[in-house]
Simulated scan of single mutants.
Amino acid sequence: MTALGILYPGHAAEDDYPRIEQLLGSDVRLTVVHTDTAEDAHRVDALLDVGSAPRLATGVEELRLSGAEAVLWASAGGSFVHGARGAHDQVRALAVAAGLPASSTSFAFAHAAREIGARRVAIGAAYPDDVAALFAEFLKETGTEVVAVHSTAATAAEEAGWDYDGVLALARAADHPDADAVLLPDTALHTAAHLTDLEKDLAKPVLTAGQVTVWEALRLTDRRVNAPALGALFTREPVVQADATSPA
């Protein structure tokens, strides 16, 4: 049994995690612990508060006691708004507090894009333009070229109510002919049931927040699970980098 800990801000699409656990079809257990949010808003100041150390600390002890082998901060906006260096410091502090390997959804996107060989990506974000631009900048800082950004401002509660057509509309609006993959960064979107349909409709890999969060947690525990229902990220072999000496 591999036990993974998910720190999830507030309540929106957390029911995607039991669905993902079921779709993995293996001995993986996902424990979701909620952190507090003062406001359901995608403003920079609100996202900085969501990812602040005191708010993250509230759930760490519960995850540690659950037997988790790795901890994921399941918020893209609550990490990338700090910039690449700040997000790294956030994850390092989380790892120290938990005494476990740790990462965040933002870094999960960067690592997942590399995993599937997506050097150029398009972003479909349910954020205001300025926040979506910060995610694009984060990806650039971590080595992924962004060829298009589409933003549609919405609250987490609004996004959580979108059906497949709403998620597909966001992905289609974001897609670009030069993009190797489309990224949907908000963990408030329900996407676990839609991944194969999204990839079929767009004819390319689609990376979504809940999906990459769980994949990253598995990566931290050196687990690879073949789960076709979770999209190309869970079926492809890792891309072998041309320069084996380059840092991960």
Rank of each mutant, 00 (worst) to 15 (best):
A12Y: 07
A12P: 01
A12K: 12
D15K: 07
D15F: 06
D16V: 04
D16T: 11
Y17M: 05
P18Q: 00
P18R: 00
R19P: 02
R19N: 00
I20W: 00
L23K: 11
L24E: 00
L24Q: 03
L24R: 00
G25H: 02
S26N: 05
S26R: 11
S26Q: 14
D27C: 09
D27E: 14
R29M: 12
R29T: 15
V33C: 04
H34T: 03
T35F: 08
D36Y: 11
T37D: 01
A38V: 07
A38Y: 09
D40S: 01
D40W: 12
A41T: 05
H42T: 15
R43N: 12
D45K: 14
D45P: 11
D45S: 11
L48Q: 07
V50S: 03
G51V: 10
A53W: 15
P54H: 10
P54S: 13
P54R: 14
R55E: 13
L56I: 12
T58P: 03
T58L: 05
G59S: 09
G59Q: 10
V60C: 06
E61M: 09
L63P: 06
L63Y: 03
L63I: 03
R64K: 14
L65N: 11
S66P: 12
S66A: 10
G67T: 09
G67K: 02
E69K: 01
E69F: 05
A70V: 01
A70E: 01
V71F: 07
W73E: 09
W73M: 01
S75G: 00
S75C: 14
A76K: 14
A76I: 12
S79I: 12
S79K: 08
S79V: 13
